[in-house]
Structure formats: structure tokens, C-alpha cells
Amino acid sequence: MKPELTSTKPHYAILDGLRGVAALMVVAFHIFEANATSHLDQVINHGYLAVDFFFLLSGFVVGYAYDDRWYKMSIKEFLMRRLVRLQPMVIMGMIVGAIGFYFQDSILWPNIHDVPVWKTILVMFIGFTILPLPLSMDIRGWTEMYPLNGPAWSLFYEYIVNILYGIGLRKLSNKALGVLVLLAAAALVHFAVTSPGGDVIGGWSLEPVQMRTGITRVLFPFFAGLLLSRTVQLSKIKNAFLLCSLSVIAVLSIPRIGGSEHLWMNGLYDSLSIILIFPLIVYLGASGEVKGKYGSLICKFFGDISYPLYITHYPIIYIYTAWVASNKVPLSEAWPTGIVVFLTCITLSYACLKLYDEPVRKWLTRKLLVKSTKQAAVQLKPGY
């Protein structure tokens, strides 16, 4: 997620833009998923890999923004900064999910209207804390740890790796970090090629298999991004935003590989995309430069809406999926409504950004971070 950069550092505008491109692909992936019969015939087949791309970007920007600030920043301040950046939209995503919950009447969730209002509210408030819900509190029936807003699962693991980074793993030397990244890469490849589905899909449930999936998916990309931020020697790449955007779209759109007979082939594609292609895209994006007014505006807009779009779109997707399933609407007839859903998700994310997220983060920064930074400056000894 987007870090708070110091004024002395250049800002990687292209990486912001790429985060937005990936978020838009996630929305399209979920819209097409409503008409898919399985992962084999899903349009934008590998859209789920956008989550792994987000984790890699997160590791890169967190390392870039914070690695050289620990002489004047405490663990508490770091965690508060991440909380201020991430948590307001987690709360908004749960509110949107709760509001939309009773508009999702479908054969997919036949008992959804039997859920009492008090239980929905309780699930929403627990969701505000990003604490995962046990299966006994799954009010939808999809075994999600956040049944009002499924994609919030990735924020749970985002917090885990941020905490690990803040409390100690940031101190690892590049060599030790490289060993950790290699081990995580090996675990990722093994998991992907041996998984029952032949992919890395999963992580949204407290079930042991799902938790292993989530941990495996976050460890390599986050810490690989961190290592990349420390070691990469950037070059000047022309047209980097266009090149990298097309690369992200291509990786996420490529059809299923290997079919149902050779599931391991798709697992290999998933793992190699995460381990090789995504770091290369981030390197190229960080090496590029946005030129021109319109290019800067596009990257800024995409970057600004990326997180609000990701964390608020799925409650609308629930409603759309329920409509498709209940009325058995084929893709040939559903696509106009799908376009409306796509644009609605973007509009909602922008409204949440401007009317809620930015004002709330500004207020929290003034109330929490500025005060804590001043207090820390007073307590630090000269030269520390």
C-alpha cells in the first residue's frame, strides 16, 4: 500500500499507477467470475495474482519509505503509520459490505435473510478490527474470515508481514533477507505445483489449508519487494508505465495453462510470475519516469483509487454475482450490467477516497502521528 514518503525522496509515480492497473484488473476478474463454471474457463484467468503483485509492491514501498528512518522512528510509530494508512478503508469496506448484505438474495446463499441484524452488525464491528472471524460466525456460507467483504483477508496478512518487519525482520542483513526470500520462493513453488487446484488461489479462511495458502502467498512477495528496494540499481527506462501496465494486464489475462490434466503447469506459471515477472515489472516501473501532464494525472488517479477500489468493490460484486446466479444470466447478456458494475465500483472508490479516506487519514495524522513524532524528537538523545 502507498507509504508516507519523506520529502527528500523521489516518488515512484509509476508504481502508484501500476497498483491502480492491478486493482482495476481485480474488479474485472471478479465480474467475469460470476459467469465462470470453474477456474479453467474464467475470463482474465489469472486475475487473482494481482494480490501477490500488491504484496510485492507493498514490500518494495515499505522498505523504500521506512528502512532509513528507524534511527528516529519507534516500532509504535511505524505501526501507527501503517494503521492510519490502511485501517480507515478497512472500516469503510465493512460498512459497505454490511449495507449490501441484504441485497444479495440468491440461490448461492439461500439462508442469508435468516441472519439477524444484530449478528450482521457484530460481524461488521469485528471486521473493523481486522481480527479474522471463526467459521462459526460465517454468516454467508463461503467460509470467509470476513463474510461482509471477502478481499479483506489480504489486509490481515498485510498487517502480519508489516508487524514482522517492524518488530525485527527489518534488521536482517541483505544476505539473511536473501536466504529468507529463497526459502519462501521454494515454498511458493512447491505449494503452487502441488496444490489441488493447480494455482495459488486462497487465503480467505481460518481453515488450516487456507491459512497456509495465505502465509505462503504473502511471505515471498513482501520480503522479495523489501530486498528489491534495498539492492536494486535503477536504470532509465523509456515508456515504462505503458510497458509495465501491458505486462501486468498480460500476466493476469493469460488463459489457464495445462487444463485439468496438467494442473502443475498452471501452478508453475503462477509461481514463476510471482517470483520472476512481477519483480521485473516493479524494477522497470521504479526505473521509469512519468513525463507529461496527462501521464502524471493518470498515475496519480490510478494510485489514489487503487486501495479504496480493492477494499470496497466486492460487496457490489456479491450483488452482481447473486443476480447472475439467480437469473442464470449468460455472459452474452450480462456484460452491459457488468460494465455498469465496473464503473460503479470506480465511482464508489473515488467517493470513499475524497469524502472519507483522505479527510480521516489527515485528521488521524494530525492527532496521532504529528504528536508522537514531536514527542519522540524530544526524547531522542542528540546524535541518536
Rank of each mutant, 00 (worst) to 15 (best):
D138E: 04
L155K: 06
G166L: 09
V51P: 04
Y66D: 03
V84D: 00
I130W: 02
T143I: 07
L122C: 00
N162S: 12
L83N: 03
I112Q: 13
Y157P: 10
G97S: 10
F101S: 02
H39Q: 13
W153L: 04
T129W: 10
F54G: 04
W70G: 11
D138S: 14
N162T: 04
A34G: 08
Y165N: 07
K76A: 15
T37K: 15
T37S: 15
P88G: 08
M80Q: 12
H39P: 00
S154F: 15
V62E: 01
K72G: 11
L133K: 08
V51W: 02
S74N: 08
F128R: 06
G150Y: 12
W118R: 11
M94Q: 15
V161L: 12
L155M: 15
I126A: 12
E33K: 13
D67R: 02
G166V: 06
V123G: 06
G166Q: 07
F54R: 06
R82S: 02
G97H: 06
Q42W: 12
L122S: 13
G59K: 05
V117G: 00
Y102V: 00
Q104H: 04
E33F: 13
G93T: 02
W109F: 13
H39K: 12
D41Q: 00
I75F: 01
S38V: 03
I99Y: 11
L108F: 03
F128C: 12
D105C: 01
W70V: 09
D114H: 14
Q104R: 07
M145C: 10
Y48I: 02
L148W: 05
Y157N: 10
M89N: 05
G93E: 01
I160N: 04
R69H: 04
Y64Q: 04
I95D: 05
G100A: 05
G47Q: 09
R85L: 00
V123P: 06
L56H: 07
Y102G: 05
N149P: 03
A36K: 10
M89P: 04
L40M: 13
Q42I: 06
W70D: 10
W142M: 08
D67T: 02
N45F: 07
S38T: 02
E144P: 00
D114L: 14
G150M: 15
N35H: 13
N162G: 13
L40T: 11
Y102E: 00
T120W: 01
M137L: 15
D138P: 00
H113W: 05
T129E: 02
